[in-house]
Write a protein that binds this DNA or RNA. Structure first.
Lengths: 218, 218
DNA sequence: TAACGATTGTGAAACCATTCACAAATATGA
DNA sequence: TCATATTTGTGAATGGTTTCACAATCGTTA
């Protein structure tokens, strides 16, 4: 059981790596491993053994000295820590290119994130069927979102509309948002916001390429 | 001019924020601002004034004491630092749901990232036209990528195929990769890799929701 | 059952990023 | 032209994350 220890300030990086460990363990299980050492796990993910152990130690002690961590069990522990050992109802707002792609994205549902509602403000899209889900009018968010017990909203509308949509979903009671629009959304302190901004990632690559040669001057 | 100072170890966070500043400045310019203080800029992006100044100071001194930073000029400086004051040729590998969405994504080209080539291994897709670009066979990467002067590869193939595709584009001379496949790619040290993994972001949200109440036990 | 090798869990040390605080520089208004 | 208010740029202080290093523990083998 994922223990309730004093899990006060867990850093974003640690949570991020937990996701990475989880994927690694999935692969290890498939490959037939029963146990895995922090050393081996770290090597696979280009991390350090100490980091793996420290990350896990925030949540409990899951390993056996001299042996390592039990693959299956650790997977379950991490799933529980991350909250992915259950289903979350998701609403998708905006059925443009990105939105449509996400509806068909299988990894989504595999991890327990189930798209229950799809919204758009385009009359031509409202009522249409996307993978079995009828597109609703954004105007109906306030009633539909609580009704369907939605925990997470995924925003895939154009940047210009994003803040308004964001305010709307929060109004409807959503407290976790994944934003694909290329803008910085403003949310209250009790709302969790994550951004997926491919322009920023490309700019990072562009920076790296431009500064390839360490550029030591002066 | 973006100066060539001793820009040795710039942290990822700083580069990330540079992208954020750039977007903020775009908006400020539209709103008619000529200058902006670190205080104001920080307030808009929920950062601290000191952070803004420190970030910028790694690259030069662009402000005027008592006044602030000139909006237009600072934008250009950052564009130069990030390397987005020019065009980069991009190849897209994999025309599934995500790949198709990216081809139509306008922000892409706006920032100077121009998709020149599209690859797939599905015979039914090869030869088809996506927004004016004919889909090529992945088997032809080795010749086409150098020919078209591609700097960045965007990988949108299923996880199972991603590592092989990754090895292929590196073989063809690409040194910057944006990976959408939900796997940890292995690349040599001189290749820049960024990951866009929406499952991980969702898991982060899931973690936050699950631990909403600080969970102080023991 | 005892001895050995392996590996965890974790304080302490080292490292890195952020914030503080203030001198230096500039704009502005009298 | 001078005094005042503002804001930058940056060393120093702080706070946070990663790595180190080792005692504690366990499996294995003789």
């Amino acid at each position: 059981m994922a223990t309730n220890r004093k899990l006060r300030k867990i850093s974003d990086s640690t949570i991020h790596r937990l996701s990475i460990y989880y994927r690694a363990l999935l692969a290890l299980e498939k490959e037939g491993y029963d146990t895995i050492s922090s050393k081996e796990l770290a090597k696979r993910e280009k991390l350090t053994p100490a980091q793996v152990r420290k990350d896990l130690s925030f949540f409990g002690s899951f390993g056996t000295r001299g042996l390592g961590y039990p693959v299956k069990q650790l997977m379950q522990e991490i799933a529980e820590i991350l909250g992915i050992n259950r289903a979350w109802n998701v609403a998708l707002i905006g059925v443009g290119n990105v939105g449509s792609a996400l509806v068909s994205y299988k990894e989504f549902a595999k991890q327990g994130f189930v798209i229950r509602l799809i919204f758009d403000n385009d009359q031509r899209k409202i009522g249409s069927n996307h993978k079995g889900i009828i597109v609703s009018d954004v105007a109906d968010m306030a009633s539909l979102i609580p009704e369907h017990n939605i925990s997470i909203a995924v925003i895939t509308v154009p940047g210009s509309a994003a803040q308004k949509v964001c305010d709307g979903v929060i109004e409807s009671g959503v407290r976790a948002i994944l934003n694909f629009a290329p803008v910085n959304l403003r949310v209250p302190n009790d709302v969790f916001l994550r951004n997926e901004n491919m322009a920023i990632e490309l700019e990072h690559l562009s920076f790296s390429l431009r500064n390839q040669e360490p550029m030591i001057a002066e």
